[in-house]
Design a protein around this nucleic acid. Structure first.
Length: 892
RNA sequence: GGGAGCAUAGCUCAGCUGGGAGAGCGUCCGCCUCACACGCGGGAGGUCACGGGUUCGAGCCCCGUUGCGCCCACCA
């Protein structure tokens, strides 16, 4: 029975049906197979409770394209899926939900809170996964993982213990970024600097005189953006080379409001050029001051509680909010005459990337990863090309980060996450790090051990993702076979959070890189170029787009017309165009299948006899497209690759080839010709669908499966390869000549307003027999495309009326007896314009060919090519001149 | 302050190693031609930001200027 495509293209039912079939047939599933080469990609695990947004859609599409392509090339592909527990962002959301119910997180307690979190995960954890499926993602869902599943937990503990043993992980009192709203420490990467309009307060502190009294005349002046931190000041610093202050070093100042003596110290950190060249030093509340304090053995006075209110060290200000305190202090300093002036000032303020609260630098006891040694192999890997970053510009960013890296604060004062495998002995204070809870303190044998309350930074577990998902720390066959993975696809935004940390974690634990290529892509923005965000409400829901236009159209839109490294604008018109393309190939396919006879299946059949020039032309063009597209994909230029497939299918295959063969399909007594055409139509259509499949998996599958019955799915069929025997240069040139002729005739007819329904005869005149042969062989489709009633070839102008309109081609002239229908003036205008164009081309050609440097320097083929061009221009020029002369003569 | 990038048709953007300015959308003209009006054919529209330079030849290479966002950074 003859299979048929539905009359209208409707992605809705089709996509779900096909995806289900793929899943049932286990096409996505990968098993170790030593006879095949693996190709492995790990998904950047989306937040387990997240929902799909355009950024995911883009990211997943790129990965799926690579995976489907490699699968078709015969690789044993594994696309490892999974989700991330997203410690802080999930915790924040649950806390807020609780708040709405009037429940305080701390009142609820850790146990109950975690129960609630797991409940959340159960409830929403499947959402993102089912949404990824709607996109057509060919992930191996049998292998889905979660960063807090049993295996990942083991991996995290193992890495923590090992790194602790090697001294890479330590607990220490350091100045860290603190979010007073989320109540936790943050890593440097989680701090986002925002430009804010603030003030610069110029303040002065009085000197303490020799006799111990506080001076009322001698002051030292400086500026600050955070006056409240003065409560924790323990010194004032100047540059050691600063002549102005040299003799003041070692002198004492009185800290106003607190009545604390402050030494004046000299430190290189102070910039003499800035302000007065004096800086107040608050070691407990500023990272730089912290360093200065260490160098000068200054006391660290913490004046703040975790919620950013002032603590008991702030004296009478204790209990006040940091900003209220700021105002109060400024007021009091002013009253004391110590406020010199206030200046408006814009500066960058560190904020928490999740909640945008201004972070407070505080000294806290936290767990850190020492980075100096760990980062070295990660730097080397990129420098020596072991890991390739695409686009290459990413390297600068990468090195900028690695060169300035500081120790990574990995402990978080949260509950949702991997609890730190460290215990404190209540009896002797010993800290024990181990894989399991120790029964007794190894030092004092005491048994009162309490586990560290903190959890680990989310990225600590994601950093292990490429190997923990394959079974590590066990030496599984999967790990041996699929690791290292191949390509990582992700956005710029997590290069520091994730990519670099995966690289050094992999080198440390596995001794090798986690992937050989990283592809960074830009952001998906709205039509105005703004970030898509919840607060702006300008986000476009990918699922809504899929519902309206189909996942194929969405995918195509996301990778077309933009290089991946830069941001893209997304709007509906672009998706509509993609959908139109899908509709186009649907209808072209339908047309081809309509013309197949009962039980006729040309897929995979040997090339039949009787291929005509047009057939060889399209085959040859397809062949070149295969090579170019594959080359582009090898370079990860997906947008360029798919554009070539698009152009080939729409323009060459649909607009030209299908129109060319139509007469042969309907005509009588031309069965051999029809069969040749059907073979080509089928072969090129199937091949084109394969080239397109990674980008538009659903529609290509439907067409492929309906077109032929030898193979059960396009996704496991072979990727087309370039074949020498399909290269037909001669026919490409011949068809090019006919195309030029057809365009010329259409052009004339349009310019002169000849009704499309009006068929006219065409006479081709050329002295070159070969040229005439082209038109004789292609007579049938040439006439059909040109809207000609008939065509005749001859070597001279005998029998052609002077009034016939002519079309000049290189090497031939076409005559159309249109005289009575035609506007002579329009024709004169057209020819005049044509002459002008030819003059310009000739001038350019002339200039190049008389240029000695060009003749000597350029490639010989280029020179020959240019000579050939010039000859053609000259020929055409003469023809046009002649026609024009005739017309104007006649007119006169 | 440092870094990398972008400025090409009305709009959104392609344009690989220098040698005939492109696509989609929009617009204009003509077509419901038996696969497709989500279509077909044809057209208009660009001193490729500006100023220099290298070159026989530059959208593409070099220098500078302007404009725009981006990343990083402790300038109190």
């Amino acid at each position: 029975m003859k299979k048929e495509l539905a009359k209208a293209y409707d992605p809705k039912g089709l996509e779900d049906r096909i995806y289900k079939t793929w899943e049932e047939r286990k096409y996505f599933h990968a098993e170790v197979d030593e006879n095949r080469k693996p190709f492995t990609v790990v998904i950047p695990p989306p937040n387990v409770t997240g929902i799909l947004h355009m950024g995911h859609a883009f990211d997943e599409t790129v990965q799926d394209i690579l995976v489907r392509w490699k699968r078709m090339q015969g690789y044993n592909t594994l696309w490892q899926p999974g989700t991330d527990h997203a410690s802080i962002s999930t915790e924040v959301r649950i806390t807020n939900e609780l708040k709405e119910e009037g429940i305080d997180k701390h009142a609820l307690g850790r146990e109950k809170f975690l129960e609630r979190a797991w409940e959340w995960k159960r409830k929403y954890g499947g959402t993102i996964v089912s949404q990824l499926k709607k996109l057509g993602s060919s992930c191996d869902w049998d292998r889905e993982r979660f960063t807090m599943d049993e295996g990942c937990n083991r991996a995290v503990t193992e890495v923590f213990v090992r790194m602790h043993e090697k001294g890479y992980i330590y607990k220490g009192s350091r100045i860290i970024n603190w979010c007073p709203v989320c109540n936790t420490s943050l890593s440097d990467a989680e701090v986002e600097y925002e430009e804010q309009n603030g003030h610069l307060w110029h303040i002065r502190y009085p000197f303490i005189e020799e006799d111990g009294s506080v001076s009322t005349t001698r002051f030292i002046e400086f500026a600050t953006t955070r006056p409240e931190t003065m409560l924790g000041d323990t010194a004032v610093a100047v540059n050691p080379n600063d002549e102005r202050y040299r003799e003041l070093v070692g002198k004492k100042l009185m800290l106003p409001l607190m009545n604390r003596e402050l030494p004046i110290v000299a430190d290189d950190y102070v910039d003499m050029e800035f302000g007065t060249g004096v800086v107040k030093i608050t070691p407990a509340h500023d990272p730089n001051d912290f360093e200065v304090g260490k160098r000068h053995h200054l006391p660290e006075i913490n004046i703040m509680n975790d919620d950013a209110t002032i603590n008991e060290n702030g004296g009478k200000f204790a209990g006040m909010d940091r900003y209220a305190c700021r105002e109060q202090i400024v007021r009091e300093l002013d009253e004391l005459g110590l406020l010199v002036r206030v200046e408006n000032y814009t500066h960058n303020v560190g904020t928490h990337d999740r909640c945008h609260t201004t972070v407070e630098p505080l000294i806290k006891k936290q767990w850190f990863v020492r980075m100096d040694e760990l980062i070295k192999p990660a730097v080397r890997a990129v420098k020596e090309g072991e890991i390739k970053l695409v686009p290459a510009g990413a390297e600068k960013r990468y090195f900028n980060w690695t060169d300035n890296i500081r120790d990574w604060c990995i402990s978080r004062q949260l509950w949702w996450g991997h609890r730190i495998p460290a215990w404190t002995c209540e009896d002797c204070g010993e800290i024990i790090v181990d894989r399991t809870q120790p029964s007794a303190c190894p030092k004092c044998k005491g048994s009162h051990l309490t586990q560290d309350e903190d959890v680990l930074d989310t990225w600590f577990s994601s950093a292990l993702w490429p190997f923990e998902t394959l079974g590590w720390p066990d030496e599984t066959p999967d790990l041996k076979y699929f690791f290292p993975t191949d390509v990582l696809v992700t956005g710029w935004d997590i290069i520091f959070f994730w990519v670099i940390r995966m690289i050094f974690s992999s080198y440390e634990q596995m001794g090798t890189y986690p992937f050989h290529t990283v592809i960074f892509h830009g952001l998906v923005r709205d039509a105005q170029g703004r970030k898509m965000s919840k607060s702006l409400g300008n986000g476009i829901d990918p699922l809504e787009i899929i519902d309206l236009y189909g996942a194929d159209a969405l995918r195509l839109t996301l990778v077309t017309g933009n290089d991946m490294g830069s941001d893209m604008r997304f709007y509906r018109e672009r998706v509509e165009n993609s959908r139109n393309f899908a509709n186009k190939i649907w209808n072209a396919s339908r047309f081809i299948m309509m013309n197949l006879h009962e039980n006729e299946d040309w897929y995979g059949a040997p090339m039949p006899d009787g291929l005509e020039p047009a057939d060889k032309w399209i085959l040859s063009r397809f062949n070149s497209t295969v090579r170019e597209v594959t080359d582009n994909m090898d370079r990860y230029e997906l947008g360029i690759a798919v554009q070539k497939v698009y152009d080939f299918i729409w323009e060459e295959f649909c607009d030209w080839y299908i129109e060319m063969v139509k007469p042969r399909l309907y005509g009588e007594h031309m069965e051999e010709s029809r069969r040749a055409a059907m073979w080509c139509l089928t072969t090129v259509l199937a091949g084109s669908m394969k080239l397109l499949h990674p980008y538009m998996p659903f529609i290509t599958e439907e067409i492929f499966c309906t077109l032929q019955s030898a193979e059960e799915s396009i996704m496991i069929s072979d990727w087309p390869v370039y074949r020498d025997e399909w290269n037909f240069e001669k026919e490409e040139k011949e068809i090019d000549t006919i195309q030029t002729a057809v365009r010329g005739i259409r052009n004339v007819r349009n310019a002169m307003n000849v009704a499309p329904s009006k068929k006219v005869s065409v006479i081709i005149v050329s002295e070159d027999k070969k040229t005439l042969d082209i038109f004789t062989t292609g007579k049938l489709f040439f006439e059909s495309l040109a809207g000609a009633s008939d065509s005749r070839c001859q070597t001279d102008r005998t029998g052609i009326d002077d009034s016939a309109v002519s079309v000049s081609l290189p090497g031939a002239t076409l005559y159309l007896p249109l005289a009575e229908l035609v506007d002579v003036q329009a024709e004169i205008d057209r020819l005049t314009k044509e002459l002008k164009r030819l003059d310009a081309e000739l001038a350019r050609s002339e200039k190049m060919l008389t240029n000695e440097r060009f003749l000597a320097g350029a490639k010989p083929e280029k020179v020959e090519e240019e000579r050939e061009k010039k000859r053609k221009y000259e020929q055409t020029h003469a023809q046009v001149e002649e026609q024009l002369a005739r017309l104007t003569g006649k007119k006169a």
